[in-house]
Design a protein around this nucleic acid. Structure first.
Lengths: 290, 290
DNA sequence: CACGATCAATGCTTTCAGGGTATCAGTTGG
DNA sequence: CCAACTGATACCCTGAAAGCATTGATCGTG
């Protein structure tokens, strides 16, 4: 096709051959071969003039198209391999949706505009499963400690705050700690859904020898806040989520508040080359926040 | 690319090689070569499993695209060469627009739906020039006799009729011939525009030793009819154009009416393979009208 | 745990597709 | 009519790519 295009553009065997870095005789043979295998005369020629037949004229358009797409395919496959282009499935937990995730996504989208980011909001446990299953390429979740075949970047360290209705008695108390919550109904995600968060809450209480009175265990953070709003209890949630509470709610700091590490994770063995710069951006966010 | 696709689809070197009608070792080398020249790992493989990398997965889509368009290009160039597809520039004179042209165009469009018909309404002289210049592939015009490098198919033989205003004295006369028109103002296209038509008109009169009193010579048939409608004279026009005259006009037969051959013409040396079936359809119209 | 089966990679040989050189043949302008 | 230009043909030769034999790695099974 390149040979054909060279001749179609120059209409001169010698110059076309030169453009293809070869001598004229084999070039002539190649053109004859193309015409023979296609079974179509592409050029009208004598020893003086070369002209395209109608079929040749049409073939020229198609060749330009095919060759263009071929080049593009070769270019693109390199871009995909280098991580400049492609697709990345990115999971995150609701607890991080209002803190680092928007920034992370925005910075990455600027750095890699040709990578399609597939966002997937999940619970921490789902995220862990999907990371090992390979359904996610990277995810933002709580640091749950041991994670062998995962690389981890610490993004931010979040302090838990307590939220309650504005008309709740605790809203007026100065210092809130486990003791003050001894008799409170607590709403918290179950350990099966958010192990790191739940164990942080649990040990916050057990350090003082208190067993929290957990009355409801919804899986979604959204639901927890709504239940608190309805006066069914109080809840300990990451500080970043306390900025956009509903009208009837308020948040208070906790004494010796438990801290949770929000981390960016990806399988070490990932074959997706888009992930590495994503992790790099995660590191830059960490540095910026320290 | 075919090699790549074979492996990408089977994920098995042996079977992919078989599909490509070759043995496994050279096939393995070809795949390695592709990866090397692209500088991209397309497959993740050990001696047990073969899997596509993200880059390979992306490349697969592009390859399918490129190969598809390649096949299509090869198929289409054959269609164009066989006249099944392509473009044909077809000229015709106004005098035939209401008779054979619609039928001819419709029959051809049905027979060759993939050929784009470029219609071009012209005067007979323009048509002759464009046919020799190669600007038109075929045309319907009056037979102007001698035409060396043109092939000709007679479509219909048209009788001329005379048109006039309904309030014109001639509208009541029984038999109209040159003698009756001796004193009439005649409107006719100039010889330079429609030589065959004009010479037919001229000899119709000169056979009786009469010189017609031609007062106006507009180039377009359309204009002639309008001038007649304004009472500026009478005109001799092909019978097929008399069916759709304006309200104030009427047509009458002529005694010994001059006849004109409407023909389909194309250069004998035409390189456009769409023309031959066009001419065949012209012949079928001729047979049908006899 | 050892053995065989499976499958991709490697080494070596062979072949022919495709390139090079020399030359021919047809066309055109001076 | 000749010289110059240009595409086609004849012949040769190289190396890309195919075949065969074999290796090495991995997995399932007795």
């Amino acid at each position: 096709m390149r040979y054909f295009m060279a001749l179609a553009e120059t209409l001169h065997f010698g110059r076309a051959a030169e453009r293809m870095n070869m001598s004229q005789p084999p070039f002539s043979r190649q053109i004859a071969m193309i015409e023979h295998t296609l079974g179509v005369k592409l050029f009208e020629r004598n020893s003086r003039n070369v002209a395209l037949t109608p079929a040749g004229k049409h073939f020229m358009k198609d060749c330009r198209n095919v060759l263009g797409r071929f080049e593009e395919a070769c270019r693109d496959v390199r871009l995909v391999a280098s991580g400049m282009k492609g697709e990345m499935r990115f999971g995150f937990m609701m607890h991080a949706a209002h803190s680092v995730v928007p920034q992370l996504v925005q910075l990455y989208a600027e750095a890699r505009p040709d990578v399609r980011l597939v966002l997937d909001e999940r619970t921490p446990t789902e995220i862990d499963e999907m990371l090992v299953a390979g359904t996610l390429d990277a995810a933002v979740t709580f640091d749950c400690g041991y994670a062998p075949h995962l690389q981890t970047v610490l993004l931010v360290r979040e302090r838990l705050r307590i939220i309650m209705r504005k008309d709740h008695p605790l809203a007026a108390v100065g210092q809130i700690g486990p003791e003050e919550l001894r008799e409170e109904k607590v709403i918290a995600a179950p350990a099966a859904t958010a192990p790191a968060l739940r164990s942080a809450i649990n040990s916050y209480f057990s350090a003082k020898g208190i067993v929290p009175h957990v009355v409801l265990e919804p899986r979604l953070q959204h639901t927890i806040i709504q239940l608190v709003a309805k006066g069914l209890g109080v809840a300990l949630i990451p500080a970043s989520l306390c900025t956009e509470l509903g009208a009837g709610l308020t948040s208070r700091a906790l004494s010796d508040a438990p801290q949770l590490d929000v981390v960016l994770r990806a399988p070490i063995t990932t074959k997706n080359p888009t992930v590495s710069t994503f992790m790099e951006i995660g590191k830059s966010i960490q540095r910026a926040s320290l």
